[in-house]
Amino acid sequence: MNFEDVKNGVVEVLRKAHTELPEDVLKALKKAYEDEENEIAKKNLEAILRNVEAAKKLNVPMCQDTGIPVFFVEIGRELKLDFDIKEAIAEGVRVATKEIPLRPNAVHPLTRENSNDNTGMNIPPVDVTLTEGDKLKITVLPKGAGSENLSVLKMMLPTEVKKIERFIIETVAAAGGKPCPPIIVAVGIGGTFDLAAKLAKKALLRNILQMTNFELEILEKINSLGIGPMGMGGKTTALAVLTNFAHCHTASLPVAINIQCWANRRAEIVLR
């Protein structure tokens, strides 16, 4: 396996993520369309479904906010990689930005100057995990800013365990229509300040149709709020609540809520 293989794999996985919505997300959106009774909610969901079809047919990004591509890489321990894998991924992003093409979104945080290739200081983010075997798995989650901007991290008190649910519901209510509902609410509970956010982000990689009872109960309450698709009313505010846990310090309770728009784009590729 060499630099080129990884670079090409990244272009392929980005193309798939932007033009084809994962099956589970599409299923959840179709069900929401069938269940909705609010006329405006139905119109918004219909536009979303037609849009997903159009993107696939025309091979263009389903949403113009092609996001910041967040990468999760699993490296088999038996693999020998004698090149800079993060640079290979960055190069794949540069090529994909031109070829797919993607909107150049990465700017300097202070001068706001656009790098024009979706890479820059510490961007794209690459999370690396070592696993068994001799394969390399690259997963990409292009994350749009509309929903990312409504995400919140709170260092709660250890005595506030019962208030976690309230924090989640209040965060969704405050976000209203801004993050492009129906949203996916990813929650990292525990760990440290940084780990809580990472746990939340990683929860977005899960199949959204498989939820625990804890998650389903919160989802039901969120959907009783009536925010609806695009904040214009209806019973589909969220498609899923996905949690991810870690042990934490006895003196703390970090809770991170990463809000994701309906376009929960993700794709993976396995290289040998």
Binding site: N51, A55, L58, P61, C63, N116
Partner: peptide
């Protein structure tokens, strides 16, 4: 209100780009 995220659908109704101003702000801005 146009449905958020429906980028491909919106593009289908855009017939042409007549001009671009202030391109130094970058493609999105």
């Amino acid at each position: 209100a146009f449905t958020g995220g429906a980028g491909a659908l919106a593009a289908e109704r855009i017939k042409s780009v007549k001009k671009v101003y202030w391109e130094d702000l970058g493609m999105p801005e």
